[in-house]
Design a protein around this nucleic acid. Structure first.
Lengths: 217, 217
DNA sequence: ATAAAAAATTTACATTGGAAATATAACGGA
DNA sequence: TCCGTTATATTTCCAATGTAAATTTTTTAT
């Protein structure tokens, strides 16, 4: 039990404090402007103090991104329970995905940066999968993905994930036009129509794609 | 006319040489490892020489990304002419989009980085739109987007673009599983089924989304 | 109380992007 | 051809960054 002012070490819980400060610095200064020294200064410790809790800046960023996935998961789950199973839930979760990206653009970029974070870290892997599972579990409940898809669920999952993630990414990177007040022209409900039925081709057995012509030129 | 050894200035054409060197450095050392000094050293000039042609590293990266969009446009057009108008062309262009991303992953990341490049630069804007237009022009030729979409072409465009771009992004960032030899489990032809027909909801008139609940939390 | 471990600081260093001053080559006009 | 102007590139310098090593301070365990 930690009471008020019960700073057991010099700081008490520097590890959590650094992650919190990192989240704040991220949205204040942008992904490109974030620095280890800046985060440390925000907490009020020397710039080498983080070394005791994270092996490097990369490690700290990985922990921040992990927290990002947890927030994203919560945001996707928000509102899903209010909807009946089926396409409505898929739209609610998808809108949560986009909403999170819009509300935490720099964190979202970090989470999918690939080079700044350590994607092999067990914690971030677990958190990322938990977020992905929200979409996947709902998609698996849809009529068009019940049983007749013996090639595995990958195809329909990836189609949906690609659409949602692509839209969020393009919005966050400023590639897609918004209304003047910053609101969206379309949310995922508009972009992703009634998935109660889907083109028959999607139900065919998928064959592994061997990538002819994919690795030349 | 420039003959061999006709170095008119100290270098001759440093601007182009820097872009070329930057493209090479990018794929060799990755987006995170690229540096102005490294690019300059590769060409054999001092690290401040680029200043005469680009105001900053950001400017040089913007020029590199611009060239990237031009390569991407060519890659998308490759093979499109062989296909009859319609869904087949859409698949060919989409596969070109993904193929470019897989063959130039670091360049692709730079092109959509948002912070490293200057998205307002007129040249990069023109090049990016040219790439986007390949997808858009084909999409507009499809039956399901002929005339009854008075809300503008944005919705169908963005749905397709999101799917293609999202898939390319997730592949490049290593978020989507591949076969052991690096080939894809699905290409865009598998992911994007017969678009000869499409859910009726997509043909309804789109209404502007005002973003209720999008900016809270 | 004292030794051991944990946590944080100080100092130092290599690398980076950029600014300023200087040097060198190309060009244009007499 | 000569010379001044401009374009191009170098040298020197600086602040900021991430990291390593040595040191100091605090906590914990015995």
């Amino acid at each position: 039990m930690l009471k008020k002012n019960d700073k057991r070490y010099h700081h008490g819980d520097l590890k959590s404090a650094l992650i919190e400060a990192g989240l704040a610095e991220l949205e204040e200064k942008g992904l490109a402007g974030v620095s280890l020294r800046g985060i440390a200064a925000r907490v009020g410790v020397s710039h080498t103090a983080p070394k005791n809790h994270f092996d490097s800046l990369r490690g700290l960023l990985t922990a921040i991104a992990t927290q990002g996935f947890e927030i994203q998961t919560a945001e996707m789950r928000r509102g899903v329970e209010d909807q009946p199973p089926g396409p409505a839930r898929l739209r609610a979760a998808s809108n949560g995905y986009v909403r999170f990206a819009l509300n935490n653009p720099e964190l979202f970029k970090l989470m999918f940066s690939g080079s700044l974070k350590d994607g092999e870290d067990p914690d971030i892997k677990r958190a990322a999968w938990a977020s992905y599972d929200v979409l996947r579990d709902i998609a698996h409940g849809l009529d068009w993905d019940k049983a007749d898809n013996p090639g595995g669920p990958w195809r329909t999952e990836w189609m949906l994930w690609s659409m949602v993630h692509g839209y969020a990414t393009l919005l966050v990177e400023g590639e897609i036009r918004r209304n003047e007040d910053g609101s969206l022209l379309f949310d995922m409900s508009d972009l992703m129509p009634d998935f109660g039925y889907l083109p028959e081709a999607l139900k065919e057995r998928p064959k592994p794609f061997q990538g002819e012509g994919m690795n030349d030129g």
